[in-house]
Design a protein around this nucleic acid. Structure first.
Lengths: 195, 195
DNA sequence: GATCAAAACGGACCGTGGTCCGCTTTCATT
DNA sequence: AATGAAAGCGGACCACGGTCCGTTTTGATC
C-alpha cells in the first residue's frame, strides 16, 4: 500500500510537482484502463497520457505492479471504511455471524470485480500487510465474539484464503461453480468452523 | 500440464528431433536454475545452453510459464503417484483422517519447497485442472469416507486453499508464523470441518 | 533410395517493463 | 529576493519475453 491510502499515510510530505504528477498519473491510468482493460495498459501510455516522462511513473510507483496497487488503494480504503463504520450487516451493529457472512459476500464481490486488477498488482498487493492484515484482524475479531476456540489468527487467514482471486477463478472458471454456489459453500465452511 | 506428465500424456507422438530438444531444454533449464535460481533464468540462456534457437523453446513450451510448469510436472507426477500408490499414511492403507492430515503436511512441504517455481509458472500451473483437480478429488474422497455432510466439492477446494503458495507466504513471511504453526492450524481447521 | 508435405528449426525483430544520469524544479533558509 | 542542496524530471537506453517467416529436417509412402 502506498501513501495514497488514507488509513496509513502521512509521511514527510511530497513536493508539489510530485503530488501533481502522482494524481495525473493515477487519473491517466484509470482512464486508459477503462478504455482498454488492465492487460493492455502500458507504462509508456500512462506516462504519455499524463504528460510526463516514463521515469516519473517508475519513481512514483516503483513498478507496474505498484501502479496497479495504488489504483486498488482507493477501492480497498472504501471497502475497509464500510467494514469499520458502514451500515450493517457489513458494518457494526449486526450480530457477529451476520457480519461474518456479509464480510464473505462483500469480499467475494470485491475480488470478482477487481480480479484482473488484483492479479496485475501481484505481490505488491497480495502480500501487503495492510490488506490481508486488516481482513484477518476483522475476521479474527468476529470469531472471538462468536466464541470460537483455537488458533483464531490461523483460522481467520484460512477462512479468507478460499476467497482469494486465484481460488475463485479456479472454482468458477475451471470448476464451473456459480457465484452463488461459491458463496453458499463458503457459508457452509464458516458454519462448520464456528459450530 | 503438458505432454511430459505421464499421467495424462500420449497423443499423436512427437518427432524425434522435437523430443530430443524438449529433453535438452528441460535439462538445460534445470541446470541453470540450480545455479542461478528461478528468477534469474532467461529463455535466451536456456536456449543457448541447450544448443537450440530461441524459437524452439517457445514452440515447445509456449511461454516462460509453460516451461516452468513443465519443470514442475516431474515433481507433481511423483507426488500424485505417492498419494495414489505410495506408502501410508499419505498413500492408501491408513485411516481417512490420517491420510487427510498427511495430505496437508505433504502438500505444505511441496508448496514451500517449490514455491518460487510454482509462482513462476503462474496460471499455466495454478489453474491447471490436472493439478488442483487431482488434489480436490482426493480430498473430496477422503471427506466422503469421513462421513462429512454438505457440498464436499467446495469444502475440498476450501481446505486446499490455505495451503496455496501465496497464502503460505503471507502467513509465514508477513505474519511470522512458523511452518509448524501453519500445519497445526490447518489440522485444527480440518478437525472442525470434519467434526 | 527418391519424393514430398508436414513438422520443426533458428535467429532477426519487436514491444514493454525497468534503469540511469545529466538537467530542472522546488522550497527552506537567510 | 538570492542561494543551494535535495528532490524530482525526462527520455535515451537496456534486457528479456514473445513473434515471424524463410530454411532445414524428418519420416511416411512409393
Amino acid at each position: 500500500m502506498s501513501k495514497t491510502l488514507p488509513l496509513l499515510s502521512s509521511g514527510p510530505s511530497e513536493r508539489a510537482d510530485a503530488a501533481r504528477n502522482r494524481s495525473a498519473l493515477l487519473d491517466a491510468a484509470a482512464e486508459l484502463m477503462a478504455g482498454c482493460g488492465v492487460d493492455a495498459l502500458t507504462m509508456d501510455a500512462v506516462a504519455a497520457r499524463a504528460g510526463v516522462g516514463k521515469g516519473t511513473v517508475f519513481r512514483r510507483f516503483g513498478s507496474r505492479e505498484g501502479l496497479m496497487a495504488s489504483l486498488l488503494d482507493h477501492r480497498e480504503a472504501e471497502w475497509q471504511a464500510s467494514v469499520i463504520s458502514g451500515p450493517p450487516p457489513l458494518g457494526p451493529g449486526a450480530a457477529p455471524m451476520e457480519r461474518l457472512l456479509a464480510f464473505g459476500a462483500s469480499r467475494l464481490r470485491l475480488h470478482l470485480d477487481q480480479g484482473a486488477l488484483i492479479e496485475a498488482a501481484g505481490r505488491t498487493w497480495g502480500e501487503n500487510y495492510a490488506v490481508l492484515g486488516f481482513a484477518a484482524m476483522h475476521v479474527r475479531l468476529l470469531l472471538t465474539e462468536l466464541g470460537v476456540q483455537g488458533n483464531l489468527h490461523y483460522l481467520a487467514t484460512a477462512l479468507i484464503a478460499p476467497l482469494s482471486v486465484p481460488v475463485l477463478r479456479q472454482q468458477i472458471g475451471v470448476g464451473h461453480m456459480s457465484e452463488e454456489q461459491v458463496l453458499a459453500g463458503w457459508e457452509e465452511l464458516v458454519r462448520k468452523v464456528v459450530a
